[in-house]
Amino acid sequence: MTTPTIEPLRPLPEVRRFLAGRRSRPAKTLRAPAPDRAALERILEVALRVPDHGKLEPWRLVVLGGAALQRLGALAEARAAEIAPDKAPKLAAQFRDAPLVVAVVAAPEPSEAIPEIEQTLSAGALCLALLNAAHAEGWGANWLTGAVAYDEAFLRGGLGLEPSQWVAGFVVIGTEGAVPPERPRPDLARIIRWVDR
């Protein structure tokens, strides 16, 4: 049996430039067309390469398009009337106006070895990996949540999730309609503490 050859890591300046310029695109500026199924599968294949302690795969993906987005927009508006009345139009538009949404569902697995918090962090990592993979393929993307991401009626009735599941993020993907301005970034001196001993 031959051992596969693994190339040593080397600097990748083009990847560093990409990451240094990473910027979410506001969801309201994303338009059709969205990636087709083959293009989206390429994005998802890359995005799923996230840390996953114990190989539990504690997440699921629900790809939402077309009539499903209109249905969920109506449901979001109805649920918002009860849970966040001032946000109803925004929550409805989050679905109705989106070209494509990938719901990243946190689906923790029972495990004595892997705490649920680690599984939750893996779902968050998947949201960011999905953004980066979409951007790397030339699509605009944004990670949203909102009140319906935590609303039992929306999660069960709208997405068919199990009681232990919840939405870590609704990732909107589409064609960029406007280039967003750069925003201030964190001041490293303010947020980093170096400990040498």
Rank of each mutant, 00 (worst) to 15 (best):
Pro51Ser: 03
Leu126Gly: 03
Glu109His: 07
Leu69Arg: 10
Leu61Gln: 02
His135Tyr: 05
Asp52Pro: 06
Glu45Cys: 14
Ile43Phe: 08
Ile43Cys: 07
Ala107Pro: 08
Leu126Tyr: 01
His135Gly: 04
Ala133Arg: 00
Pro33Arg: 03
Ala92Tyr: 07
Pro89Lys: 11
Pro58Lys: 11
Leu44Glu: 05
Arg79Ala: 04
Ala68Glu: 14
Ala106Ser: 12
Gln119Pro: 02
Gln70Tyr: 09
Phe95Lys: 07
Leu56Ser: 04
Leu61Ala: 03
Arg49Gln: 03
Ala47Arg: 00
Gln94Arg: 14
Glu45Gly: 12
Ala88Arg: 03
Ala98Thr: 05
Ala133Glu: 02
Ala32Asp: 12
Pro58Glu: 13
Leu30Arg: 05
Val46Trp: 07
Leu44Arg: 01
Ala88Ser: 05
Arg96Leu: 14
Gln94Asn: 09
Arg79Ser: 02
Pro35Asn: 10
Ile83Lys: 10
His53Ser: 09
Ala68Ser: 15
Lys55Pro: 14
Glu109Asn: 03
Val50Lys: 02
Gln70Lys: 15
Ser24Ile: 08
Asp52Trp: 09
Ala93Tyr: 10
Leu126Arg: 04
Leu72Thr: 01
Lys87Val: 07
Ala136Arg: 04
Glu112Leu: 07
Ala76Gln: 00
Ala80Gly: 05
Glu109Gln: 12
Gly65Trp: 03
Pro115Ser: 01
Leu130Pro: 00
Arg60Leu: 04
Pro115Asp: 07
Leu64Ile: 02
Glu45Tyr: 09
Ala134Ile: 04
Pro85Thr: 08
Leu121Asp: 14
Lys28Trp: 04
Leu56Trp: 00
Val105Glu: 15
Pro85Met: 11
Gly73Phe: 02
Val101Ile: 15
Asp36Ile: 06
Glu112Cys: 00
Pro99Gln: 10
Ala107Phe: 06
Gly65Tyr: 03
Trp59Glu: 08
Leu72Phe: 02
Leu44Lys: 03
Arg25Ser: 13
Ala134Met: 04
Ala106Pro: 11
Ala107Cys: 05
Val102Trp: 08
Val63Asn: 01
Ala39Thr: 13
Val105Leu: 09
Asp97Thr: 11
Leu131Lys: 00
Ile43Asn: 06
Leu130His: 00
Ala81Met: 03
Trp59Asn: 05
Gln94Leu: 14
Arg42Ile: 04
Leu72Arg: 00
Ala80Phe: 04
Glu109Ala: 08
Ala134Lys: 01
Ala38His: 11
Ile83Trp: 06
Lys87Leu: 11
Leu126Cys: 04
Ala78Phe: 09
Glu118Trp: 11
Arg22Glu: 12
Glu41Ser: 08
Ile117Val: 12
Ala80Cys: 10
